[in-house]
Design a protein around this nucleic acid. Structure first.
Lengths: 221, 221, 221, 221
DNA sequence: AATGAATGAGGGTTCATTCAT
DNA sequence: AATGAATGAACCCTCATTCAT
């Protein structure tokens, strides 16, 4: 019976930390850590300032909890990727990166990237997070597909890191641009707002990557 | 002797605003706008806190002055570029971008990029600056060379913006990485610390760009 | 079984106020009224913070209840004293004061004395308590024995209050020293830590008090 | 000339720490450390709360500074004491203690004693202060005179510490009583408010101390 | 009766900004 | 022009107290 009575109350209590972290993330991203007020975070989570301190010992703690528990989710590149042997490496690569880019855009990863850039000096754990949860997984996955492509004779033999570089870094800038710059009045004519810019960028990079015996322009004749 | 003293004094006085802006830039970049203390900026410029307010009406004013007067210098991509017709477009492109990348690295443009990302919401002028002084000049210049290359039959016929995308965005991330992340303990094995990463990245992108009748891989034999 | 449970529960409930007062006393003594946290008091009494407020309307109320109900017990000088006529006044005095001093030491009266000193300004009732329950009873009792001694020709004829002064005040300091200072690192060589300091002090004062025809130091020879 | 212009300003600045310490002492004594508000301390010193923090890094620092710099002055028992050989030890002792008692009363040492008792748990330095600046100097001085008196045949041969005990501890209680209790409504009939109580107490203790061959009551005859 | 959750009010501390010299 | 001193306005955080179950 106690359970019944408490249900909604308990559910609330269970949800509090998550709600607070959500609110904190939003405000940290919006204003930066220093300028985000504890009271505003609490208000955004629908509680009073003091309640925030029931769940987190300090504003710093909030950020640390964000780093530890919440950042990772939602920007996992390896989440879903088809490894069927039948698939061409270039399609695999396209699928993975398109999905990741889409995920990052949807979860407003740019805000998080910005926060990491801004606060990494005060919270070195952010550097770890950045490396461990963003750069390296992406590198590992993309490299793997590139190596697979090279092994299968689909790709030219290139340093896989160069492909990572050419495909992943632009995604990061696009995220930053969207979540940090776009709210400000950036003209739509901007380079980064072009329609399907990532898709076309991907195909362009692919051009330099694929081994294409069939597309010989008759040079040897 | 009085004149001498006055002279240096005057020179000092003339230099004050510049010195203060310099100090402000350093601290804004290091700690962010909100966390940079007016007192520290003044101290770094070698004057008292009150003196800062003789030259700038507020901390915000400092940033606005920075945006208006100081950001542009030092990251101008068009500063020096050879337009001799004799030069191959790929060499031209390589020279320009290598020089720019080098300039950006040297003037710690990453810090400024970070500042722009962080404060653009509070200072919309930063968005203008970003577009007008960074993205568009680079786009214009690179596009121009690409078009020249296509016109001269050196490059494949591609959307020039894609080349901008593939070459410029990674440079931005590299700057951010260097000036915002590197001070934190990022492992040297990091993707972005690889030796001559930009040079190799450039060559990789170039591969997909050049029209290569001479570089046939022997496909027709 | 239900009865059993209820019984102990009831007993618990009956005991709650006492347990809370006990806990409050301990923490008020340890940290002072202002610095003692309601939550810590409740925790020490084994209940939740909210429960404390079922029994006492405020933290102040706790102290008032302490003053009213609990301080008096345990430091009553008149508790047990032998009034047999056969006893020499000096022995009577020694017995009474030694017993009292011992009682005070055991019940950590020094902490209470400290609390009285600290909070008397905010709780004037503490001054009443101090006078009515500590000073005056001791004064009455000691004075009475001194008068008895004088009447019986055992003591010199002195103002009884002077004896009270000489014997009671040092006891108070000793209590304060023990319960307020000793936990801090006071060197054992301290004046107040000497072995049997009270006993020896008593005998010293007694020397000046007794009429001693039998203890002539041979001055007339 | 600069000195002239600044004179009053500078004097103010020089005086600030002293004024703040004075105010802090008053409020710490009146309300205890925890309950004394920084704002009230500043207001009492005639400055704003923020100004307090120009001179002291925290409220704790204020107390530490008080301990280190201000407590000692004003309660120095050894300040002025005549060591002329011509003086009788009992007169020397009376003079010294009367002067000390008077000094302590005037500088409201009782408040400081109370503060020490209250805060010694949080500021162990207070225990050092108490021992080093109050108890031991008094002990040393009184002991010295007692030994001198014994050596010169003026006093009975007693443990000097007992005399310290009998004379110094009551002074401490009197101070505490006056500065901590008296503001509260303690009846004037109180033991400790008797006229010249210390003088009479001293004479009483002296009775038990002096060697008096001339005052033989004829016991040996 | 008991308590986990919540909060209003308030205190300590900082800092951008102004004042007096 | 320059600055040491001063401060009002926040902001972070705590805690006595109340609410909802």
């Amino acid at each position: 019976m106690l359970e019944r009575v408490d249900a909604s109350f308990r559910r609330r209590k269970q949800a509090r930390p998550r709600e607070l972290l959500e609110a904190a993330l939003a405000l940290f991203v919006e204003k930066g850590f220093a300028a985000a007020r504890a009271e505003d975070i609490a208000a955004r989570a629908g509680v009073s300032k003091a309640t925030l301190y029931l769940y987190f010992r300090s504003k710093e703690d909030l950020l640390k909890a964000l780093i530890a528990e919440r950042f990772a989710s939602g920007m996992d590149i390896a989440a879903t990727h088809d490894t069927s042997d039948a698939m061409a490496s270039q399609d695999l690569l396209r699928d993975v990166l398109t999905a990741w880019q889409s995920t990052l855009m949807q979860c407003h990863a740019g805000g998080i990237f910005k926060l990491i850039l801004t606060e990494v000096r005060n919270f070195p754990a952010l550097a770890d997070f950045w490396t461990r949860e963003v750069i390296e997984p992406a590198r590992r996955l993309v490299s793997g597909i590139v190596v697979r492509g090279i092994d299968r004779g689909e790709f030219r033999s290139v340093d896989p890191d160069l492909v990572v570089h050419a495909l992943v870094l632009p995604i990061i800038v696009m995220c930053l641009h969207r979540d940090a710059m776009r709210p400000a009045s950036v003209p739509d004519s901007s380079l980064l707002n072009a329609p399907d810019i990532f898709g076309r960028h991907f195909e362009f990079v692919l051009e330099g990557l694929i081994d294409r015996p069939l597309q010989c322009r008759g040079c040897c004749r």
